[in-house]
Design a binder for these strands. Structure first.
Length: 498
DNA sequence: CGCATTTGACCTGCGC
DNA sequence: GCGCAGGTCAAATGCG
């Protein structure tokens, strides 16, 4: 399993030995421009440290010919050729910069709008339904709550269940995972939520939730399945009695060729089962960081795409997490917070009716809440290929897979940014990566979703184009963090803003 | 030898 | 009530 199976047949990974040069720029080496223009000191240092292979390649490519010829005309000709090719590459880089700029602008704009609208929704719901919903939810029919994240939300809103079910993808009979992304750029950043409120929903009352922990507390309260005796686990049977049916699950889909996804925690396998509809066995793991930790996870490969690993987490760690595990934990927490914010009865969170009363899909600028009525359609179960198909578990799915044949979106990605994001979710095991980005839209600070996990080198580098002079901030960053961790951080920062 | 994994048995809930 | 499926247990097994 050490072998690096590349799911994308590009040459980047193969050409990189110890270091992975993640080139955002249609495969062009923006740093070749530095031969003509002095880079910023930071960038230069960064390049020397991390991209020696590329720089060396450039030197080697030009040196033999220049040594073989002694005449000045030949040198001049060679220089002209170099300049010409560099100009051409510069133009391509500029175009890529523009795409990146647009992409970043859109993300930032979406994020701001989403943040504002989310606040509004919270405030409105707090005014509307200040009381708990114990009785309300018990009497409501099963609600199915679909949540998806994407950029082109308004035009891709799914209007009815038929459309949902028709959504092609990695699902089998139910086919209900909705992926919303940008077709043009092939970026599939799907946040899929399958949620069905059980008929007999017992309500927990955990009023003292901090925003960060509210979900995990909820998950912990509800973890032990009612089917479990839990004789040995002491206080957990109280939990079982508290709220046996409302359990938040966070399912993460990643492309991974290793048996399990490295999420930073220690797990002990306690069972394996062949689930119906999926020839791949489902493995059950228990957190072993602390003896009494109630967190468990299920790992299963997607039946339709064996390269996709589906990991479903349940419960809350009752112990400090390793640093490497905090990203996943916080991300799943945030994801499940979103999930439970529509169903939780916690006094601080949005009311369950906030989702239930939304007769039509609400569009929060890329955050689509879709509510379907179970009485009119088949249940919104997880596909068989997914783990935790038990419908009584509210489950949110973080789709960290790249565009694939299972996606309804066009996978013909031409955007290097999308490929960059795709690769964040597709490269395992973690390796050192370096990336150069140019953001002409940036002012003085790197994007706020790039945090301490990135080894940042940031500087301003002027770009000259023949007819269009632009000043571009060059942002170089490398990291030893796993790609999935980075992407989780990205999700956390940009989408969930935890 | 200790720990992790495997695997068949068992339990529980749910649908018919 | 019965069968099925999901989930868990625990003895057996493997491995360092």
């Amino acid at each position: 399993m050490e072998e690096n199976k590349s799911f994308e047949s590009n040459g980047d990974e193969e050409s990189c030995g110890e270091e992975i040069v993640l080139q955002v720029g249609a495969g062009k080496r923006a740093r070749e421009d530095d031969e003509m223009k002095a880079p910023s000191p930071n960038l230069k240092n960064f390049m020397n440290c991390t991209n020696q292979g590329v720089v060396t390649t450039n030197i080697e490519r030009s040196s033999p010919e220049s040594e073989s010829r002694s005449s000045s005309s030949a040198k001049r000709e060679q220089l002209d050729n170099q300049i010409g090719s560099s100009k051409a590459e510069m133009e391509e880089v500029m175009e890529e910069n523009q795409r990146l700029k647009m992409y970043l602008d859109r993300i930032l704009k979406d994020y701001r709008t989403l943040q504002m609208q989310y606040r509004d929704v919270i405030q409105q719901e707090a005014k509307k339904s200040p009381i708990t919903h114990d009785h309300q939810t018990e009497e409501e029919p099963d609600e199915i709550f679909a949540l998806s994240l994407g950029r082109n939300s308004s035009d891709r809103l799914i209007k009815d269940e038929n459309r949902v079910i028709k959504t092609p993808g990695r699902n089998d009979e139910s086919g209900n995972i909705v992926e919303v992304g940008d077709d043009k750029e092939g970026l599939k950043l799907g946040l899929d939520c399958k949620f069905q409120v059980p008929k007999k929903l017992s309500i927990d009352s955990s009023p003292n939730h901090s925003p960060e922990n509210s979900l995990e507390e909820a998950k912990e309260e509800t973890w032990p399945p009612k089917t479990t005796k839990n004789v040995r686990e002491g206080g957990e049977d109280e939990i079982t009695q508290q709220n046996p049916s409302k359990r938040a699950r966070v399912s993460v889909r990643v492309r991974c060729d290793t048996p399990t996804m490295n999420d930073g925690c220690q797990w002990r396998k306690y069972g394996q089962k062949i689930a119906k509809g999926n020839p791949c066995p489902r493995a059950y793991y228990r957190c072993t960081v602390a003896p009494s930790c109630p967190v468990r996870k299920q790992v299963q490969r997607c039946a339709e795409d064996m390269s996709i690993l589906i990991t479903t987490y349940e419960g809350t760690h009752n112990h400090p997490l390793p640093i490497s595990a905090t990203a996943m934990a916080s991300t799943t927490s945030a994801a499940a917070s979103m999930l439970l914010s529509g169903s939780s009865t916690s006094g601080t969170g949005p009311s369950p009716s906030s989702a239930a009363t939304a007769a039509t899909p609400s569009n929060l600028n890329g955050l689509n809440f879709y509510l379907s009525d179970n009485s009119r359609s088949k249940p919104f179960y997880l596909p068989n290929s997914s783990i935790s198909s038990t419908p009584s578990f509210p489950t949110i799915t973080l789709d960290l897979t790249s565009s694939s044949s299972s996606s309804s979106s066009s996978s013909s990605s031409s955007s290097s940014m999308s490929s960059h994001l795709s690769r964040l979710g597709t490269n395992f095991p973690p390796r050192y990566s370096t990336t150069n980005l140019n953001f002409s839209s940036l002012e003085s600070n790197p994007p706020d979703f790039l945090d301490q996990q990135w080894d940042l080198t940031y500087g301003t580098q002027p770009f000259n184009k023949n007819n269009n002079q632009t000043t571009t901030n060059s942002l170089s960053f490398g990291t030893t963090q796993p790609y999935e961790t980075l992407y989780q951080s990205y999700l956390q920062k940009v989408l969930f803003k935890t």
